[in-house]
Design a protein around this nucleic acid. Structure first.
Length: 276
DNA sequence: ATACCGACCTGTCAGC
DNA sequence: TGCTGACAGGTCGGTA
């Protein structure tokens, strides 16, 4: 489900609603799959703490957990996987199916983690030690990276540029939709080995990727099937997709039917004419 | 180290 | 109507 723009929308929405609120109690489902840390440890770290900030790092959502004295000593890391949702609801709103965590807040609301497919994950980072740094994710931020560093990421790599964009240890936050959309906007064939894409074209890709991500954030992300923000509201960027999920439909630039191939095991949508 | 592939889950939709 | 298979925004671990 969620890539950088969707995760950013969720993180910002949750931040606006729960920042400053204190966790009173927690509930976790019996199914262990969503947890990278024992539910009991998560409960211990969350209860009594105040959520001071919720932000996005790559495709992760990070909530800062402050002690009563205000010191942030832990981070709650949430990954939405494919179908995960993080919802802020009044406590009397019925709990949706596939809810795996519910955090009761002093304001009377609940922060709920809902995930039908259970690819999402909940984790905890402790910042107790002096050298513990804030969570920075596996790769570099697509919206922060310079064009020069972006070009450097792909040098000498033999895997397809599309697969390289999806590799979270290089850039984190780009997923299948925005990989396809940025490659089409930059006119680059997704199957090209990353190391063979010329420097000028990589600079173009850098610019188009940042542009498409910013436009998507501005529209609240892409709702392809079940993505919703913290209020359960859908995004609108799916209306701006030029190739993703448009197999067989005419390219909006040249009219050639959009082609679907498989790269890196993922559906890939491209225009055979515009992307060389 | 790099790259590829299947596995992990459930829901939905097209086709028969 | 109901069954079956393909497919879905992501990551991880095993293998070459």
């Amino acid at each position: 489900m969620p890539e950088l723009p969707e995760v950013e929308t969720v993180a910002n929405g949750v931040h606006a609603r729960v920042a400053g609120d204190t966790i009173v109690s927690t509930w976790f489902s019996a199914k262990p799959e969503p947890f990278k840390v024992a539910p009991s440890a998560l409960a211990e770290a969350l209860e009594g703490r105040t959520i001071t900030r919720v932000r996005r790092v790559g495709k992760h959502i990070v909530a800062d957990l402050a002690e009563p004295d205000g010191a942030v000593k832990a981070e709650w890391i949430i990954h939405l996987g494919m179908t995960g949702r993080l919802l802020v609801s009044q406590a009397d709103v019925p709990v949706p199916p596939h809810t795996h965590a519910a955090v009761s807040l002093a304001s009377g609301r609940e922060l709920r983690f809902v995930d039908a497919r259970r690819f999402g994950r909940l984790d905890l980072r402790r910042l107790d030690t002096d050298k513990a740094e804030n969570f920075t994710g596996p790769g570099l931020e697509p919206l922060q990276i310079s064009a020069e560093a972006f070009v450097e990421l792909f040098r000498g790599r033999k895997l397809a540029i599309k697969a390289a964009l999806l590799n979270q240890s290089l850039l984190h936050g780009v997923g299948n939709i925005y990989a396809d959309e940025s490659l089409h906007r930059a006119g680059i064939r997704p199957s090209l080995p990353a190391g063979k894409v010329s420097k000028p074209r990589l600079r173009r890709l850098h610019a188009e990727l940042q542009l498409v991500l910013r436009q998507a954030i501005a529209l609240g992300g892409s709702s392809v099937s079940d993505y919703v923000d913290a209020d359960g509201v859908r995004g609108f960027f799916q209306l701006e997709h030029r190739v993703y999920s448009r197999t067989g439909q005419p390219c909006l630039a040249c009219g050639t039917p959009i082609r679907r191939t498989i790269i890196g095991g993922r559906s890939t949508h491209s225009c055979p004419h515009c992307q060389t």
